[in-house]
Each structure stands twice: as C-alpha cells, then as structure tokens.
Design a protein around this nucleic acid. Sequence first.
DNA 1: AGTGCAACTCTTTTT
DNA 2: GAGTTGCACT
Length: 746
Amino acid sequence: MGNALPPYLASLNPEQLEAVRHQGRSLLILAGAGSGKTRVITTKIAYLVRERGVEPESVLAVTFTNKAAKEMRDRAASIESTCSRAVMRTFHSFGAWFLRRNAAAAGLDPNFTIYDDDDQATLLHGLLPQNTRSECKAMVQAISRAKDLGLEPDSPDLSSAFSDPGMRRIYDMYDRKLRKTGNVDFGDLIGLPARLLREDEAVRRRTRQRFRVILVDEYQDSNVAQFELLRLLAGTGDADGSAGAYLCVVGDDDQSIYRFRGAEVRNILRFPEIFPGTDIIKLERNYRSFQSILDVAGDVVSHNAGRIGKKLVAERLGGAKPALSLLDDQDSEAAYCVKVCRERVKAGGRWSDVAILYRTNAQSLTFEKEFPRLGIPYRIVGASRFYDREEVKDALAYLALLCNPRDEVAFKRVVNKPTRGIGETSVDILLEAAGGGAFAGGAFAGDLLSASAEAGESLKGKARAGIKDFLGLVSGLAGLLDAPAADGETLALLVQRLIKASGLVEYHRAQDEVAGTQKVANLDEIANAASLYPRSREGLSTFLETIDLDRSLASEEAAATDAVTLITMHNTKGLEFPVVIATGLEQGLFPRDDEEGEELEEQRRLFYVAVTRAKDELHLTSCRWRRLHGRLFETGPSRFLSEIRGDLIQATAARRADARPVGAVPSPYGARPQPGVPGPRPGAGPREASPWRAGQAVYHDDYGSGVILKVSPTPSSGPLVVVRFETGRQAQFFPKFTTKLEIQKG
DNA sequence: AGTGCAACTCTTTTT
DNA sequence: GAGTTGCACT
C-alpha cells in the first residue's frame, strides 16, 4: 500500500503540505514574502474538494485585490476544475455579491452602484452646501475610516474614535442620504453584509449553511470591519451551538502597509487569541530571492517591536551583496538607474527585468523626463486614474442613472451636461420633487427621472425645454437597453449612442481642440470596454460593478511590452522582479521625520516589502539633495540604512563634490552602534553638544513659539530640527542656514 | 455660464 | 513646481 502523494501535493515542502492538509477549527498561516502562500491557498482549496469531499460551493476565499482574486481562481481551477464553483473574490466584491442577493433584506436596490470617494463628497456637499468641497472630502474620509472601524452613526465608540463633535451628526446625515439614493459606498460593502448577518436570522443561517470553509489571503491588510464580517460569516463561538466554518487566514505581519487606510495589524497578531484553538504554521522558506537580499530586509524589519517574528531562509544560496549608492541628487539617481538597466540588458536580460521603486508618485517625474531622452523604455504602474477623468465619469454617470434612477450624484452630474439651460435652481426644484416625500412614501420615492418628468412641467423657458431633452435622451437609451439584443450586440452600442446623443462627444471634442487633450479618445475607450458585456440591464450592472471595484485598466498589451517598471513601493505587493532599485532612501522622505511609533514601523514594513520583491539583484539609492515641493533639501541617508548590518551591503559614494568615505554614512537618531559600515564615526556622531535638542522651546520669526520634536544630524548641514509650533503647524529647519529660528530661554 | 486668476496643498491609496 | 479648487468677474 503505497502512500505516495498525488503530484499536485508532492512538490510542496513539509510546512506547505502541513498547511494544506491541516484540519481543525482554524488555521493561521504566517507566510513570509516569497514563501509560496498563493500556492498553498489554492492547493488547499483543491485538496479540500478533491480529498476531503468538500463541495466547491461551500468554499469562500477572499483576497484584497482583483488581480490576486483572479490568480487564485485560475490557479485553483488549474489543479481541480470544479474549484471554479467556489466563491473566490475580493472582500468588496464578495460584499457586493452578497448584497445583490439579499438586496431587499438589506434595504437596497439590487441595481445599486458603488460611490467612490469623489461621489461620496458630492453627495455630502449636497447636504452641506455651506461647506467647501475639500471640507466635504475630509469629512467623507473620516466617515470612511469610521466604516473601516466597523462604527455606525449610533455606535457609542464613535465619539472616542473621532474628536470632531459634529462627526456623529454628519455621518448620520450622510448615511441616511446615501440609503435614499439606493447606492452604497465601499465601506458599506463590508458593513452592510455584517449588519445583515447580525440582525437577520434567516440570512445568517442560510449563509452559514452555505460557507463551511473560509480562507483569507493577505490577512494582515484586513480592517476591523472586515474582521467583524469574517467573524459573522464563520460563526465561530456563537451561542447557537453551531460548529462554525473552518477558517484559514494567510498573511505576513511584516507586510502590513495599509494602516493609513484602516488596516489593523492586530487582526493578525491577535488572531490566535480571538479564535481559540487556532493552529499556527509558519512558512519561512523563500523561493524568490537570494539570502543576501533577505538578510537586508530582515535586519530592518527586526527593529520593529510589534511583530510576531520570523526569519526567512532562502532556498537560493549566494547572490551578490545588495548595492547601496550614495548620490548627489535625483538626476544622478536617474543616471544610476539607467546604468543598471543598460547593464542588465547588455548581460542578456530584458528591460522588464528591472523595477524602479519609490515611495511617492511625485518621484517618478525625474525618471519620466530622463528615460525617453536616453532611450529607456518604461511603463508606470498604477496612477492611471482613467476612471477619474471628467469625461469618463460623465459617461459613466449617464449609465449609472440608467441603472438606478435614484442616483442623485449621477443625476446632478449629467442633467445639465452638456449645458441644457438647467441651472442650479431648476436642479434644486427637481431634486426636491423627487426627494421631498421619499421617506413619507412620496410619489416618486427618490426616482429622479419620474419626478423630473412631472416637476419639469412647472419649470419655464429654457429649463423646461432642457429637461424634456434630457428625459427624452434617457428614455431613448433605456429603450435601447431593454430592447432585445441581436446576436453579437454588446453594451458598446449603448455607450456609442449615449456619448453621441447626449452631446458629450461634441462637448469634449471642442475641449480637445483647445487644450490638446484626448477626451474623445477616452470616451471611445469606454465603449470599447463595454463591448465585453451584453446589451442588457444585467450586463450594464455587471459592467458598472466591474469598473467600480476594479479601477486598474487591465491592459494585457502593456504587460507584454518589454519595458522598465516604475512603481510605488505600495503597488509592488505581490509582484517580483529580477532586479529591484529602491530609490530615495533618505531621512525625511523614507521615512519622513515626523513618523514614529506605529507609523515608523509601517515604513519599515514597506521597506521590507520593497526589498523582498527582488529576485537576483537589489540596489538601494540615497541622494544628498532632494527636491521636494519645489524646494531643495539636504538630506541624510535613511535611518533604515543604518539598521542594516554593514557587512551585508556594498556601499559606494558616487558624489561629485565632497565625496566621503563610506564609513562616514551618518547614523541618524543615535541608532545603536553596529559592526561594520555604515555606522557612526567615533567622535563625529550625533553626540556633539548642541543647543538643538528635542523638547527645547524655540521661537521663529514667522511662526512664533514652538517646541522641537526631533533633531537629526546631517553630514554637512548641521542638525535638521523638526518643530511643532503653537499654531499647530509643523516645519523643519537647518539652524545653520536660518537666523529666524532661535532658542527660547526659560 | 463660462473663464481667469489667486490661493492652497503636497505620502502611501488593494477596494 | 504642479496641480487642483474656490471665488470673482464678465
């Protein structure tokens, strides 16, 4: 009786195999970068279906990105084809799926569309016209954070989480208004399913019967609301005596980099205590990088206090020491990158082997300027913002309104675009007609189109004709949408008709000519994207949801071209490249000088993510001069660099003037002395007597009194002093170069 | 209603 | 320095 493993299991290492075959209540897989976690999760799904008799339909697997979800679906199905019947989606896409199936119970229109932050701000602005748009944006952001925390307008904890006393009232107003439109925001895609599961026993029972196995990828990026939803879905520890679903979460606490968006590292740190009986498996074998690269990543992240702790061990031994280049400014940095790229290609590699990483999008500019001139092909990942463009949002708003006639944001956007003589006052009259009685069971219950048809009659002159025009246009489009589609007809037809008949094409063509933009081309691109969907209400709904939930304009073509990748460090998660250049490793930029505590730890994790993308070669660059917000700053190397054991990297100072020996790399913040380079030179460290110390009261000519938060030494500019003023303003100075900042006695 | 100018801000951003 | 936003003007 041979117990040879089937081939799809045989190639796993022992820990991976253990994770795949694990049975019990719940499992936490701590999977370091490059340890094959996607492989484990997909294999586990296939294994459960194949060997354990689990119905694919009863498996729910959630991820955070569409790309990851797609990869999971593809890979699981390639092992076991019936896996395609499992629900494998992003958290938000699962929420939308769930809400459409339980729309009535959730009090939603099954054709709801999803408001992005811009739409949210528009909605709130309609409620608070006396506030500016950017104020509304800020408030909407606070509301979104509240939703990330799983807080509702009537949650007692809301007041302690948000200092603004008006928050509760605004949040409440906003939510009521949003419910009235029948639409949802991103937070609702998590929060409303959770509420429904909490409050509706029938839905809860049905859902828990269905999903017996729940897996979560990139669990370290989940927020409190997602955790709540997960707990409700799993039903573990409920009083009703149900067994609860088998819960398996996979993540890496060292790769949690979305705290600023509400991600909660504690979700993963505390998982075992919240789900008693959890088994933990660590995957620490790395199949991607050379050990020399992992050591650098490990050294930096080991300075974090709040981590579970693990050590990555490379399967690929050896590899060159990562290179650290100390450069003059970002032009030298670009030149250095060019050199690395050319060398790679000369050695038989491809341009696409190389990725240039930076913390902020603004840093890509120098590369974009230099590369075409020097013949380096490149592509920028992220920041496409196609769906944020004016003309694109216009066209989509027409479609959204067609889908849901209660969508007030869409209505306001397009009712008078292009201009039809419907001014602000007319729009208000129409909104009033639709909204006035919605709660009291008004005649139109928020239906803006029906309301406009009636209230439009009471308008006069231009506005009256305009609204007739508009309604005629919309009903024509609705007619086309509902008419039976001939073979091969797609939504593209509807979009083409829409952009022509609405006058959007004409309107934007005129702008193109003046400003040299390509708005008409973008409109055509929407029609092109729509051609993947059938011409029906359902097709339209799917089309809009896909756009709402996936703003990345997935272009296969772009991925296939051989070009250097320019990308923010955040965007690299889940990717890998043979050659990685992590740029801008300067104190004040990465990390920023005001980052400390949890924020500083998150930056270390970001460094860890960036570095562990590299398979063969890692380069780090740090510039002495950095142009930021239009000003030139002298900076020192990032403190992260001094957290790396000196013998792990090959440092070179390629500076024109004042080239200094490598040993002189400063070690900001008085970091503990470490063997090798870089490290503080004896006698030249930050220990020099200086009146500039944290806590010292100061006075500035322009800003008034303040207190020094932090002092960082620089190689030749003296200390860099970060000051918080009584006005609340924070600023940094080189006392060496300014006479305006003085010590305040007392 | 549409244009022009001054003022403000300026990490990261899966969904 | 660049892009966006708000306000005022015609």
